[in-house]
């Protein structure tokens, strides 16, 4: 098949050429013209997911400015507005689009602020897992032998625990070690650490596999013949070439991390209710589910589902687009 193998992703990772505005424009034009962008434009699912995701991200990121209320500013809360149903139901109030919870907080605003925490935790956890997993995977794959054996056995052991168990463990340790009142302020970091640490073996395995494939290719041997040190080979030669599958994995993992965060928060070991994430909101709302105030839990849940679904669909598309066999 006479298909030109274009550099599918990030062709300019290591190019040390000066980035003039003109060069940036040219790169942008080339990016728009690339096979990846083309495949994106041709996939309605990817485009819709991206739009949904951008709306979610925008709403979360700019929540303090775009949210109709500040649900955490106690001064603006009015208990008289508590348990207002959403639009279209009897008793709805125009200023509360999706209704309010038992404290009179606007559900829509709470979702926007909650998504902020959820996304922050998800992204940070994935970045942490990626940093850990990619470097350990590179070392294992390139070093081989005993180092490889050690790292991968640790990964095996860790993979045999469910992620939530590990997160619970880290959370428990943090609670035991830290003073009681300190926990609330660092809860987010504990969550990131717990989810990040429980996810690194996936990255390590993926990276190790592709590193071992790439390592046997002649350009790595050529670099060794030139006299490049192992760290240089890993960083400059191997990393850009093993990153493709990692990016796919990371995309899908953001969704998983958000879900894990929600689960942990739902179980009560996540972020405190004073700074709720989507999971916390669902848990709070859960108490009212059977008393008729379903909107308090259903809307945060729907927001979570939409966000996770969009990320997953985008990840699926990315995987297919980067896989030359499926093209």
């Amino acid at each position: 098949m006479p298909v030109d193998a274009a550099p599918a992703i990030a062709p300019a990772v290591v190019a040390p050429t000066a980035a003039t505005p003109a060069a940036n424009m040219a790169r942008l034009a080339r990016g728009w013209d690339s096979d990846l962008a083309y495949s994106f434009r041709r996939s309605p699912v990817a485009v819709v997911s991206a739009i949904v995701l951008i709306i979610c991200l925008g709403a979360a990121l700019f929540a303090p400015w775009v949210a109709p209320h500040n649900p955490f500013d106690l001064a603006t809360l009015n208990l008289l507005d508590a348990l207002t149903p959403p639009h279209g139901l009897p008793g709805a109030k125009p200023e509360y689009l999706l209704g309010t919870d038992d404290q009179g907080r606007d559900v829509l605003s709470a979702i926007m602020f909650g998504a902020r925490v959820s996304l922050l935790v998800g992204l940070a956890a994935v970045v942490l897992a990626m940093l850990l997993g990619v470097s350990l995977g590179l070392i294992a794959g390139y070093g081989g032998g005993k180092i490889d054996g050690f790292i991968m056995r640790v990964a095996d052991v860790q993979l045999s625990f469910p992620a939530i168990l590990i997160a619970l463990l880290v959370d428990g340790v943090a609670r035991a070690v830290l003073p009681r009142d300190a926990h609330g302020s660092i809860a987010v970091f504990v969550l990131v650490l717990a989810i990040g640490v429980s996810n690194w073996p996936q990255y390590a395995r993926t990276v190790r596999g592709s590193t071992m494939v790439e390592k046997s290719k002649e350009y790595i041997q050529a670099a060794r013949v030139i006299g490049i040190r192992p760290l240089g080979i890993m960083w400059r030669h191997l990393l850009p070439n093993v990153l493709g599958p990692v990016l796919v994995l990371a995309t899908i993992n953001i969704a998983t991390a958000i879900l894990t965060e929600a689960t942990l928060s739902f179980l009560g070991v996540g972020v405190p209710p004073t700074e709720p994430s989507l999971g916390t909101l669902i848990r709070i709302g859960n108490d009212f589910l059977f008393s008729g105030e379903w909107w308090i839990t259903i809307f945060p849940g729907a927001a979570l589902v939409i966000m996770v679904l969009a990320i997953n669909l985008l990840g699926d598309w990315l995987r297919d687009a980067l896989n030359p066999k499926l093209r």
Binding site: A10, P11, V13, A15, K217, E218, Q221, A222, A223, N241
Partner: peptide
């Protein structure tokens, strides 16, 4: 295979 595909 002997040239890194991501390098100029």
């Amino acid at each position: 295979a002997s040239l890194n595909p991501r390098w100029r």
